[in-house]
């Protein structure tokens, strides 16, 4: 009897403690908590932050420029910068494929440029391409997916057929053809980047549209939409104020995954000679050095770093995406 009383007391105490510690959390906080429980997602987040700092702030700290070529005096072995005078001397040559040193942390590439500095500038381009392409695909995909899901019927029919057409376009051959189109019309590398971003965005929107439409189809039948209907607001407002915001979780998820995917695709395009072109650096066209068998065999300091950076960045976006999927999905609560 005595013991029982003690147990009851203890129980009561525990319950009080539990209630005191009970914090009421908003759905957003719940998602955040579940997201940070996933260690891989946190690792991904850290990698992305480090990469962004490296690419955004790095170039300001580097003493060299993106296209700066280094010369070396063959007789004295002293290195000269592009801006110095007296580069015309007979003994002067471009300092190509220099080994790792304190002046060049990752050596120089086959054109005599500093690999480490180019990695930073290349990262800027690669990340920019990733984000811009995703923004374009989201704009097109959300608008068309939203319209298809809301109106249904003939509008839905037409937009969904368009989605299927874009699904069926084989990406790699198409990019190759488009690239010869750019070449034929003499578009300079400076503008080619923008064209590539627009084309990729337009080719990728179909996936976003399909997902947004599917979400809206089910949201449209919800009771709060009936309420919105009853207030008599405009259709555009109903779609973009009440329906689209509720598809945000899936949109964020697609966006995260796609940024990584686009960076990967850009590197493959560079490999095919279609991507960002000389003199601009992107991780893709730097990693492309692996196709040169001499570099592949003897100069891992030129080809390995860009490849590793692509791997890490895409990996990080995938980890974050995975973590968010688990966090957003209430069924995953285990």
């Amino acid at each position: 009897m005595e013991e029982n009383k003690e147990l009851l007391e203890q129980n009561q105490k525990e319950q009080d403690e539990f209630e005191q510690n009970q914090v009421i959390m908003t759905p957003g906080q719940l998602v955040m908590k579940r997201f940070f429980r996933n260690k891989l997602a946190v690792i991904g987040l850290v990698i992305i932050i480090v990469m962004a700092l490296f690419c955004i702030i790095g170039p300001f700290l580097s003493p060299y420029g993106e296209y700066e070529i280094f010369y070396i005096d063959m007789e004295t072995g002293i290195e000269h910068r592009m801006t110095e005078s007296g580069l015309g001397a007979a003994s002067m040559g471009v300092n190509v494929k220099a080994p790792i040193s304190s002046a060049h942390w990752l050596g120089t590439d086959p054109d005599g440029r500093d690999v480490f500095t180019r990695l930073m500038y290349g990262g800027r381009i690669s990340l920019t391409v990733g984000f811009v392409v995703v923004i374009i695909e989201l704009i097109v995909g959300i608008i068309l997916g939203g319209l298809a899901g809301y109106y249904g019927g003939i509008v839905d029919m037409i937009i969904m057929r368009l989605v299927e057409v874009f699904y069926c376009l084989p990406f790699v051959p198409l990019m190759l053809i488009l690239s010869s189109l750019f070449l034929g019309y003499g578009i300079s590398p400076r503008y080619k980047i923008y064209f590539i971003m627009i084309v990729m965005g337009i080719l990728y929107w179909a996936g976003v549209a399909r997902n947004v439409r599917a979400q809206i189809l089910s949201l449209r039948e919800m009771e709060y939409m009936q309420a919105a209907e009853a207030t008599g607001i405009r259709t555009t407002r109903k779609i973009f104020k009440h329906l689209i915001p509720n598809t945000i979780p899936i949109i964020i998820l697609i966006a995260t995954m796609d940024v990584g995917g686009v960076i990967l695709t850009e590197s493959v395009l560079s490999f095919l000679g279609v991507g960002i072109a000389w003199p601009y650096a992107s991780w893709g066209n730097m990693a492309n050095a692996v196709t040169d068998s001499i570099i592949l065999k003897n100069y891992p300091n030129i080809w390995a770093p860009p490849g590793i950076l692509i791997l890490l960045t895409v990996l990080a976006f995938n980890f974050i995406g995975d973590g968010m999927r688990d966090a957003f999905d209430p069924r995953m609560k285990r």
């Binding site: 990967l264 490999f271 893709g284 692996v290 196709t291 791997l311 895409v314 990996l315």
Partner: peptide, 18 residues
């Protein structure tokens, strides 16, 4: 698994060949 899909295929192929 995710490392696999994060690799550019041409890069991975070249490293394997190396």
């Amino acid at each position: 698994a995710i490392m696999g899909i994060s690799l550019p295929s041409f890069f991975f192929a070249s490293v394997l060949r190396r």
